[in-house]
């Protein structure tokens, strides 16, 4: 899938850049975006290393075990045939907790670890497993108690009540997550029946 998205986007951009006279900007983007990507990676890797370190401590002190048992009832609804004592589940639960606490930068490293462990545990080769799909979909919906960026920007632009949209944000996240997960579950069950 990615090969089409990637190829199509670049070809369309070049064609459109020539037609619209923006080819200078397109050409600059080619040179600049790689640098931007490395810059972004450096920021991310810094955060990821700190969180990897903290998680390792939490893991050795059995804190992750504690937290993951809190999330288990919900996880049992979401994930089918997952080993709830395995490394994958531990990383999944830490990822969800970091997301809920609004620690987006912390959630990514846990999420990546979860994907690696899911791949190992479910022995998928080349094709995503049902649980991988559910987990990624879960992460493309944003479930956060306090969406800091939104609140900060609203405050910056002079809103007297920057937090008054919070209940709506949470409600909206839950609605869209429910739709996405339900759809994924339905497709999963159709395919497994075949």
């Amino acid at each position: 899938m990615m090969k089409f998205v990637f190829g199509f986007m670049i070809i369309v951009s070049i064609f459109f850049g020539i037609v619209s006279g923006n080819i200078d900007e397109v050409s600059n983007a080619v040179l600049q975006e790689g640098v931007n990507a490395i810059e972004l990676s450096l920021y991310m890797i810094g955060g990821m290393c700190v969180w990897g370190g903290i998680l390792k401590i939490a893991d050795k002190a059995d804190i992750t075990k504690m937290l993951s048992s809190l999330f288990k009832p919900i996880a049992k609804l979401l994930f089918k045939d997952l080993n709830f004592n395995g490394k994958a589940y531990k990383a999944i639960s830490m990822n969800v907790i970091a997301n809920i606490l609004g620690l987006g930068n912390a959630a990514t490293p846990f999420g990546l670890e979860a994907m690696k462990e899911l791949e190992k545990e479910e022995k998928t080769s080349g094709t995503a497993s049902d649980n991988m799909v559910i987990f990624t979909v879960l992460n493309t919906a944003s479930i956060t108690l306090i969406p800091t960026t939104v609140a900060m920007l609203r405050l910056k632009h002079g809103s007297p009540y920057p937090l008054d949209v919070l209940p709506l944000i949470l409600l909206n996240s839950l609605i869209s997550l429910t739709v996405a997960i339900t759809l994924a579950k339905i497709i999963n069950s159709i395919r497994s029946r075949k």
Partner: peptide, 24 residues
């Protein structure tokens, strides 16, 4: 997320995620 795995076929991941976004 998929870049750390060897998965090439992400199946219905994108479809479900985008339906969630559209709903949102």
């Amino acid at each position: 997320y998929y870049s750390v795995t060897k998965v090439k076929k992400t199946r219905h991941t994108l479809l479900c995620s985008l339906s969630g976004d559209l709903t949102g």
